[in-house]
Design a protein around this nucleic acid. Structure first.
Lengths: 206, 206
DNA sequence: CGTATTATTATACGCTTGAACAACTACGCC
DNA sequence: GGCGTAGTTGTTCAAGCGTATAATAATACG
C-alpha cells in the first residue's frame, strides 16, 4: 500500500493556504464548520499537518481573525489625496466590495461572537477597532482643519462616533441584505448623511 | 438504586426555561457552548428532556433565535405618544438597556453568523428585520407629516436607511465597547445626529 | 548520486457530541 | 387510594472532535 504523493510547500505559503481554508470553512458553515479535518480537506492536505504549523486549533483561529480584521481595515487606513478625497475614499471603500459583502459579515460575526469569550480574540479585536476609529478621527480632523472649522478634540470625537456608527450600520445593512439596495445606494446615502452630520459638502474626486 | 426526584413542570414553563438556558449557554460560551448537555445542566434537568420538547437541537436554536429577535425589537415597535415622543423613544430604547448590552450582542452575533448557513434562521431573521425597519419608516412618515414636511416614500426610505444604519452602528459600538462611552453619550449622539439628518429638532418628552 | 532533514501522511486515542430508548416516577383522575 | 398517563431520568451508541505520534516521501545538500 502506498501513500498519496504530496507537495512540500514553503512555510509562508502553506500557512497562508491553511488560514484561507479556515476562513472558507467559517464562511460556509460557521465556526462549528471549521474543524481541523474540514480545514485540511479544504486545503488539500491531511489533518495532522495543521498541528505542524499551529500549536492548537485556537491558534489558527486567532491568526485567521487577524487576517479578517486586516482585510476589513487596511484599505481604508491607507487612503491618499486631499482631505476631501481621503474622507470620501474612506467612506466608499467601507461600503463597497471587497469590504462589504456577505462573506465578510459571516466571518466578522463568527469571530465577534467569540470575542467576549476568548481574551486573546478580544485583544486582537480591540487593536483593530481602535486603529480604525483613530484613522477616521484623523481624517475628520484634517478635513475640518482644511476648511478652517472647529476641529477641537471633543467635536472630532463626537463626530467620529456618529460617523463610525453610521458606516458600521450601513455596512451591516449592505452585507445582510445587499440585494435590497440598488448599486451604490448605500454609498450615496452615506455620503449625503455624513455631509449633513458635518454640515459641509465633501468634494468629489477630481 | 434510586433516581433523583424531579418536578413536572407545565409545558409552557418548561419550554421557556429550556430556551432561557439555551440563551445563557450561548451568551456565556458561544454557539459551541450550547450543547444539549450544557443546556440541560443550566436548566436543571437531564439531556434527554430536551428532545422531549424539541424535535432536534436545530429546533431549539431556532426558537431561541425568535426570542432574541423579539426582545431586540418588541419594545421599540410599541412606542406611544406624539410623533416626536415616539421617534425619541424609539431611539432611546434601542440604545439603552436591556436592548443595548454585551449579552444582546453576543446572542445576536452568534445567530447572525448562522443566518447565511441555515435557511430557517434566515427566514426568522428577515421577518424581524423588515418589521423593525417598517416600524422606523412609519415613525418617520408620521414625524415628517406632523411638521408638514415632505414625507414622500423615496425620502422616507432614504432617511430610514440612514437612521436605521446609524442606530444599528451605535448599538453595535455601545455593546462592543460600552465602557468607552459615558452614560447616555450614545443616546445624545444619536439624537443630535438624527436631528441633523432630518433637519428638524425632536421635541423632548413632556 | 547518496544521504540527512523535515514536511506530510496515516493511524490511533480519549473525549464530547446529538440522538435514541427503556425504565421510572410524579401527578391527574375517578 | 389505586391506576394510567406521560414527563423525566439514566444509559447507551455511533459519529466526529482535537490531539499525539510513528512511518513515509519530498527536497536540499555534499
Amino acid at each position: 500500500m502506498s501513500r498519496r504523493s504530496f507537495h512540500r510547500a514553503p512555510e509562508a505559503e502553506r500557512r497562508h493556504d491553511l488560514i484561507e481554508a479556515t476562513l472558507d470553512c467559517i464562511a460556509e458553515a460557521g465556526l462549528q464548520g471549521a474543524t481541523v479535518r474540514q480545514i485540511a480537506i479544504k486545503a488539500g492536505v491531511t489533518a495532522g499537518l495543521i498541528r505542524h504549523y499551529f500549536t492548537s486549533k485556537e491558534q489558527i483561529l486567532q491568526e485567521a481573525y487577524r487576517v479578517v480584521i486586516a482585510r476589513l481595515t487596511e484599505k481604508a487606513e491607507r487612503v491618499t489625496g486631499t482631505p476631501d478625497e481621503r474622507l470620501r475614499s474612506f467612506i466608499v471603500i467601507n461600503l463597497t466590495e471587497p469590504v462589504a459583502n456577505s462573506r465578510s459579515l459571516s466571518l466578522w460575526a463568527s469571530f465577534i461572537s467569540r470575542v467576549s469569550v476568548d481574551p486573546e480574540l478580544a485583544a486582537i479585536h480591540r487593536e483593530g477597532y481602535l486603529g480604525f476609529r483613530n484613522a477616521l478621527e484623523g481624517l475628520l480632523a484634517d478635513f475640518l482643519a482644511s476648511r478652517g472649522l472647529d476641529a477641537a478634540p471633543a467635536r472630532c470625537r463626537s463626530l467620529a462616533i456618529a460617523i463610525n456608527g453610521l458606516l458600521d450600520g450601513l455596512w451591516l445593512e449592505g452585507c445582510l441584505a445587499g440585494e435590497l439596495f440598488e448599486e451604490s445606494e448605500l454609498v450615496s446615502t452615506a455620503l449625503s448623511s455624513i455631509e449633513a452630520l458635518i454640515g459641509q459638502p465633501i468634494a468629489p474626486a477630481a
